[in-house]
Protein backbone atom coordinates (compact mmCIF):
# COMPACT_ATOMS: atom_id res chain seq x y z
CA UNK A 1 0.00 0.00 0.00
CA UNK A 2 1.40 3.38 -0.93
CA UNK A 3 1.33 6.43 1.35
CA UNK A 4 -0.82 8.07 -1.32
CA UNK A 5 -3.49 5.40 -0.92
CA UNK A 6 -3.52 5.81 2.86
CA UNK A 7 -4.12 9.55 2.77
CA UNK A 8 -7.40 8.98 0.87
CA UNK A 9 -8.93 6.85 3.62
CA UNK A 10 -11.70 8.42 5.68
CA UNK A 11 -10.31 6.89 8.91
CA UNK A 12 -6.61 7.65 9.26
CA UNK A 13 -4.62 4.44 9.42
CA UNK A 14 -2.47 4.23 12.56
CA UNK A 15 0.03 1.68 11.29
CA UNK A 16 0.95 -0.83 8.61
CA UNK A 17 2.46 -4.26 9.19
CA UNK A 18 5.63 -4.92 7.21
CA UNK A 19 6.65 -8.21 5.54
CA UNK A 20 8.80 -8.97 8.60
CA UNK A 21 5.80 -8.68 10.96
CA UNK A 22 7.07 -5.38 12.39
CA UNK A 23 4.67 -2.47 12.85
CA UNK A 24 5.43 0.79 11.08
CA UNK A 25 3.54 3.73 12.59
CA UNK A 26 2.02 6.15 10.10
CA UNK A 27 3.30 9.60 11.06
CA UNK A 28 2.82 13.00 9.47
CA UNK A 29 5.83 15.28 9.37
CA UNK A 30 5.57 19.05 9.02
CA UNK A 31 7.35 20.42 5.96
CA UNK A 32 7.86 23.78 7.70
CA UNK A 33 9.07 22.85 11.22
CA UNK A 34 9.81 19.09 10.84
CA UNK A 35 7.61 18.10 13.82
CA UNK A 36 6.44 14.48 13.68
CA UNK A 37 2.81 13.66 14.58
CA UNK A 38 1.24 10.41 15.60
CA UNK A 39 -1.61 9.82 14.92
CA UNK A 40 -1.04 11.68 11.66
CA UNK A 41 -2.54 15.19 11.52
CA UNK A 42 -3.67 17.24 8.53
CA UNK A 43 -2.35 20.41 10.22
CA UNK A 44 0.87 20.66 12.26
CA UNK A 45 0.10 21.05 15.98
CA UNK A 46 3.27 23.09 16.53
CA UNK A 47 3.16 25.71 13.77
CA UNK A 48 -0.23 25.33 12.10
CA UNK A 49 1.16 24.49 8.66
CA UNK A 50 -1.04 22.27 6.48
CA UNK A 51 2.02 21.14 4.54
CA UNK A 52 2.52 17.73 6.11
CA UNK A 53 3.79 14.56 4.48
CA UNK A 54 3.13 10.95 5.44
CA UNK A 55 6.04 8.96 6.82
CA UNK A 56 6.50 5.64 8.52
CA UNK A 57 8.57 5.05 11.65
CA UNK A 58 9.54 1.85 13.48
CA UNK A 59 9.39 -1.00 14.12
CA UNK A 60 12.43 -0.65 16.41
CA UNK A 61 12.13 1.57 19.49
CA UNK A 62 13.64 2.23 22.92
CA UNK A 63 11.83 2.40 26.26
CA UNK A 64 11.87 5.90 27.77
CA UNK A 65 9.84 4.89 30.84
CA UNK A 66 7.51 2.10 31.80
CA UNK A 67 5.03 0.99 34.46
CA UNK A 68 2.83 -1.93 35.43
CA UNK A 69 -0.72 -0.66 35.82
CA UNK A 70 -2.42 -2.57 38.63
CA UNK A 71 -5.63 -0.53 38.95
CA UNK A 72 -6.99 0.35 35.50
CA UNK A 73 -10.16 1.23 33.63
CA UNK A 74 -12.94 -1.40 33.50
CA UNK A 75 -12.23 -2.42 29.89
CA UNK A 76 -8.66 -3.47 30.73
CA UNK A 77 -7.61 -6.63 32.51
CA UNK A 78 -4.98 -5.79 35.15
CA UNK A 79 -2.11 -5.89 35.61
CA UNK A 80 -0.78 -4.62 32.30
CA UNK A 81 2.47 -3.03 31.23
CA UNK A 82 2.72 0.34 29.45
CA UNK A 83 5.79 2.09 28.13
CA UNK A 84 6.67 5.41 26.56
CA UNK A 85 8.90 4.62 23.60
CA UNK A 86 11.22 6.69 21.48
CA UNK A 87 10.79 5.56 17.87
CA UNK A 88 12.82 7.47 15.26
CA UNK A 89 12.37 10.80 17.09
CA UNK A 90 8.72 10.16 17.97
CA UNK A 91 7.52 9.67 21.59
CA UNK A 92 4.67 7.16 21.69
CA UNK A 93 2.85 5.21 24.40
CA UNK A 94 2.40 1.49 23.79
CA UNK A 95 1.24 -1.58 25.69
CA UNK A 96 4.11 -4.01 26.31
CA UNK A 97 3.20 -7.57 25.32
CA UNK A 98 4.94 -10.81 24.45
CA UNK A 99 3.09 -13.75 22.90
CA UNK A 100 -0.21 -11.92 23.28
CA UNK A 101 0.18 -11.40 27.03
CA UNK A 102 1.27 -8.36 29.00
CA UNK A 103 4.85 -8.25 30.22
CA UNK A 104 4.94 -9.14 33.92
CA UNK A 105 6.99 -6.16 35.08
CA UNK A 106 8.03 -2.63 34.10
CA UNK A 107 10.81 -2.37 31.52
CA UNK A 108 13.91 -0.41 32.45
CA UNK A 109 14.60 2.85 30.58
CA UNK A 110 16.77 2.12 27.55
CA UNK A 111 15.35 -1.35 26.91
CA UNK A 112 15.13 -2.01 23.14
CA UNK A 113 11.67 -3.13 21.94
CA UNK A 114 10.05 -3.98 18.62
CA UNK A 115 6.57 -2.80 17.59
CA UNK A 116 4.26 -5.62 16.48
CA UNK A 117 0.50 -6.00 16.06
CA UNK A 118 -1.55 -6.97 19.10
CA UNK A 119 -4.80 -6.30 20.95
CA UNK A 120 -5.59 -4.36 24.13
CA UNK A 121 -8.55 -3.95 26.43
CA UNK A 122 -11.88 -5.35 25.29
CA UNK A 123 -11.39 -4.12 21.73
CA UNK A 124 -11.17 -6.58 18.84
CA UNK A 125 -9.41 -3.98 16.67
CA UNK A 126 -5.72 -4.81 16.29
CA UNK A 127 -3.33 -2.18 17.57
CA UNK A 128 0.41 -1.69 17.98
CA UNK A 129 2.19 -3.18 20.97
CA UNK A 130 5.82 -3.19 22.08
CA UNK A 131 7.53 -6.59 22.30
CA UNK A 132 10.37 -6.73 24.81
CA UNK A 133 13.66 -8.48 23.91
CA UNK A 134 13.12 -11.33 26.41
CA UNK A 135 9.70 -12.80 27.10
CA UNK A 136 7.91 -11.41 30.12
CA UNK A 137 9.66 -8.23 31.21
CA UNK A 138 10.83 -7.90 34.82
CA UNK A 139 13.75 -5.76 33.77
CA UNK A 140 13.03 -2.89 36.10
CA UNK A 141 16.09 -1.21 37.55
Amino acid sequence: MSDQAMTRRAEPELFVVGDDGGVHLVVSRCARCASPWFPARAVCGSCGSAEVTAERVGPEGTVYASTMVRIGPPAFETPYCLAYLDVDGLRVLAPVQAEGRSASGSLAPGTPVRLVAGAVGDSAVPTYVARPPIDGGDHDA
Partner: peptide
Protein backbone atom coordinates in the same frame (compact mmCIF):
# COMPACT_ATOMS: atom_id res chain seq x y z
CA UNK B 1 -7.32 10.27 23.28
CA UNK B 2 -4.92 7.82 21.57
CA UNK B 3 -3.11 7.12 24.86
CA UNK B 4 -6.34 6.44 26.78
CA UNK B 5 -7.20 3.94 24.04
CA UNK B 6 -4.22 1.77 25.00
CA UNK B 7 -4.87 1.93 28.76
CA UNK B 8 -3.42 5.23 30.00
CA UNK B 9 -4.59 6.45 33.42
CA UNK B 10 -3.20 9.41 35.40
CA UNK B 11 -1.34 7.26 37.97
CA UNK B 12 0.44 5.47 35.10
CA UNK B 13 1.67 8.77 33.66
CA UNK B 14 3.11 9.79 37.03
CA UNK B 15 4.45 6.29 37.69
CA UNK B 16 6.55 6.58 34.55
CA UNK B 17 7.79 10.02 35.59
CA UNK B 18 8.70 8.48 38.94
CA UNK B 19 10.59 5.61 37.32
CA UNK B 20 12.62 8.07 35.23
CA UNK B 21 13.35 10.40 38.19
CA UNK B 22 14.52 7.53 40.37
CA UNK B 23 16.64 6.17 37.50
CA UNK B 24 18.07 9.43 36.14
Amino acid sequence: DVEVGVGMVMPAAYAMRAQRYLTD
